[in-house]
Amino acid sequence: MIKAAYQAVLGPGVALQPSIQYVSKPGGGISNPRDPDGARIRNAAVFGLRATVRY
């Protein structure tokens, strides 16, 4: 897994933190139980955003 994150301060007490994760071979490369052909589970990219407001 590879993860990247950065926090941008927009003003006093306000910050945004985007997050990107890349998961290589989730589940160790097992077959996808939802695929009738038995293809393996593919790699995944996950995106997120965290907002922080202090008052």
Rank of each mutant, 00 (worst) to 15 (best):
residue 41 I to F: 04
residue 12 P to Q: 15
residue 47 F to C: 05
residue 11 G to P: 00
residue 17 Q to E: 12
residue 23 V to S: 01
residue 24 S to T: 11
residue 31 S to G: 01
residue 37 D to C: 08
residue 53 V to G: 04
residue 50 R to D: 08
residue 45 A to L: 15
residue 39 A to K: 12
residue 39 A to W: 06
residue 2 I to M: 07
residue 34 R to C: 00
residue 6 Y to V: 04
residue 42 R to I: 07
residue 3 K to H: 10
residue 23 V to Y: 04
residue 21 Q to S: 13
residue 23 V to A: 08
residue 23 V to M: 01
residue 38 G to P: 03
residue 5 A to S: 15
residue 35 D to W: 05
residue 20 I to R: 09
residue 34 R to I: 00
residue 32 N to I: 08
residue 47 F to I: 11
residue 14 V to C: 09
residue 49 L to P: 03
residue 54 R to M: 14
residue 53 V to P: 00
residue 30 I to C: 01
residue 21 Q to I: 06
residue 20 I to H: 05
residue 20 I to P: 00
residue 21 Q to A: 11
residue 7 Q to I: 14
residue 29 G to M: 04
residue 40 R to E: 01
residue 34 R to D: 00
residue 48 G to K: 09
residue 11 G to C: 01
residue 55 Y to Q: 07
residue 52 T to G: 04
residue 42 R to N: 12
residue 26 P to I: 11
residue 55 Y to K: 12
residue 39 A to N: 12
residue 51 A to G: 13
residue 4 A to R: 09
residue 51 A to R: 06
residue 17 Q to H: 02
residue 45 A to Q: 14
residue 11 G to I: 09
residue 42 R to V: 10
residue 34 R to F: 05
residue 54 R to P: 01
residue 41 I to E: 01
residue 42 R to W: 06
residue 48 G to N: 07
residue 47 F to R: 00
residue 9 V to T: 15
residue 42 R to F: 03
residue 41 I to P: 00
residue 25 K to M: 10
residue 2 I to H: 01
residue 13 G to V: 06
residue 2 I to S: 04
residue 7 Q to N: 11
residue 51 A to L: 14
residue 49 L to Q: 14
residue 36 P to F: 05
residue 18 P to V: 03
residue 36 P to C: 04
residue 16 L to Y: 06
residue 55 Y to L: 13
residue 17 Q to V: 03
residue 54 R to H: 15
residue 16 L to H: 02
residue 32 N to C: 12
residue 1 M to H: 10
residue 53 V to S: 01
residue 22 Y to A: 09
residue 44 A to K: 08
residue 38 G to K: 10
residue 31 S to W: 02
residue 49 L to M: 15
residue 14 V to D: 06
residue 24 S to C: 04
residue 35 D to Y: 06
residue 14 V to L: 15
residue 48 G to I: 11
residue 49 L to F: 14
residue 16 L to W: 03
residue 49 L to E: 08
residue 4 A to M: 12
residue 55 Y to T: 05
residue 43 N to R: 06
residue 53 V to L: 09
residue 10 L to K: 02
residue 53 V to Y: 07
residue 25 K to Y: 03
residue 21 Q to W: 11
residue 1 M to R: 14
residue 7 Q to S: 14
residue 16 L to K: 07
residue 18 P to D: 07
residue 2 I to C: 05
residue 38 G to E: 10
residue 49 L to H: 14
residue 18 P to I: 09
residue 55 Y to I: 12
residue 34 R to T: 00
residue 11 G to W: 09
residue 32 N to M: 12
residue 22 Y to R: 11
residue 52 T to I: 14
residue 51 A to F: 09
residue 13 G to A: 11
residue 12 P to R: 13
residue 53 V to D: 02
residue 54 R to K: 15
residue 25 K to L: 02
residue 26 P to R: 10
residue 10 L to E: 05
residue 2 I to E: 02
residue 21 Q to V: 12
residue 28 G to M: 04
residue 1 M to N: 11
residue 22 Y to S: 07
residue 39 A to R: 14
residue 46 V to R: 05
